[in-house]
Design a protein around this nucleic acid. Structure first.
Lengths: 142, 142
DNA sequence: CGCAGAACGTTATAGCTAGAACTATTCAAG
DNA sequence: CTTGAATAGTTCTAGCTATAACGTTCTGCG
C-alpha cells in the first residue's frame, strides 16, 4: 500500500497542497479587495510590493514571478497612471519604479483593505511568527 | 513612518510574499520533474492528486483551482491516455476520473521523482508537522 | 408529486504567466 | 583597454487560469 510504503512522501504532498491552497486563498483575498479600486489581483499585488522605489528585477523577485511578467503588469500600472519608470542613476540598463501621487494614494487604500480579514488572521501573532520562520527556512531565505 | 504605524500589517504582507514564494518554488520543482515525463506542471500536479478515483470537482478542490481549469487539464491527460472519464454510478451529472494502466505507471514514476530534493526537505520532520498544522489552521481546514 | 434552488461539468472568453530570443549595458579577466 | 560572460529589461508566443454563461441532473421543501 502506498500509505505504508512512503508515509514521509505523503506528508510532503499534503504540505504542497496546503501551500497552494493558502496561496490561492490569499490571491482571492487580494482580488476581492482589488476590484474596489478597479485593479486586477496581480496589479494590486505589485502595488502592495512597491513599498519604495525599486527596479523591475526587484519587483519580480518580490512577486516571485519572471521579469517578463513584471513588464506586463507594470505596463498596465503605468497606463493607469499609478507607477512611473525612471532611469536608474548609475545603471543605464535598469529602471527605477516609483509611485505617482495617485499611486501612493491608491496603495494606501489598498493596504488598509488588505489588512482586514486576511486568511492569515486565523492565526495568532505567535503562530504567525512561527509560520514566518518556517517559510523562511523552507524557501531557503534563512 | 509606515513601519511604525502598522507593524502587524507588515508581518502579514511578508507572510503573503513567503507563501507565494514557496508555492512558486514547489511549482518549479514539479515542472522540472514533469518535463522528464513529457508533462506540464499542472498536468503533473493533477496526476499527483489523483491518488484514487474521484470526481472533477474533487480534483479541482485538491488542486485549489476552478472546475473549468480541471476540465482543461483532464482533457489533455485523457488525450495522453493517462486518465479516463467514467460515468458516476449514482450521480449522472458527475464523472469519475480513473487512471489508465499507463497513467498508474507514469504517476508512480512521477511520485518517486517528486520526493527527491523538494524544497520542503529543507525542514525537519518535526518542522514539517508544525508547518502542516499552521497551514491547516490558516486555510480554515482545521 | 412538482417546483425552486443548488450542484456537476463544459464552453467561450479575457487575462495572466513562463520561456526563449533579443538588445543594451555592465562586469570581470586578461 | 578589450573581449567574453553575465545582467536588466523587453517582446513574442504558447499555455495556463478564472469568470461568466449554459445545459443537465440532483435535492429539499411544500
Amino acid at each position: 500500500m502506498e500509505a505504508h510504503a512512503e508515509p514521509h512522501a505523503l506528508a510532503e504532498q499534503e504540505i504542497c497542497g496546503l501551500v497552494k491552497g493558502l496561496a490561492t486563498q490569499l490571491e482571492v483575498h487580494v482580488r476581492e479587495r482589488a476590484v474596489n479600486l478597479d485593479l486586477t489581483a496581480p496589479q494590486a499585488t505589485a502595488l502592495r510590493e512597491l513599498a519604495g522605489p525599486m527596479t523591475m528585477r526587484d519587483l519580480a523577485d518580490r512577486m516571485s514571478c519572471e521579469p517578463s511578467n513584471a513588464t506586463f503588469i507594470v505596463d498596465r500600472l503605468e497606463r493607469l497612471g499609478l507607477v512611473e519608470r525612471r532611469p536608474h542613476p548609475t545603471d543605464r540598463r535598469a529602471k527605477i519604479l516609483a509611485l505617482t501621487p495617485r499611486g501612493t494614494d491608491v496603495r494606501a487604500r489598498l493596504l488598509a483593505m488588505l489588512t482586514e480579514n486576511s486568511p492569515v488572521t486565523r492565526l495568532t501573532q505567535e503562530e504567525q511568527r512561527t509560520l514566518r520562520e518556517l517559510l523562511l527556512r523552507a524557501t531557503g531565505r534563512a
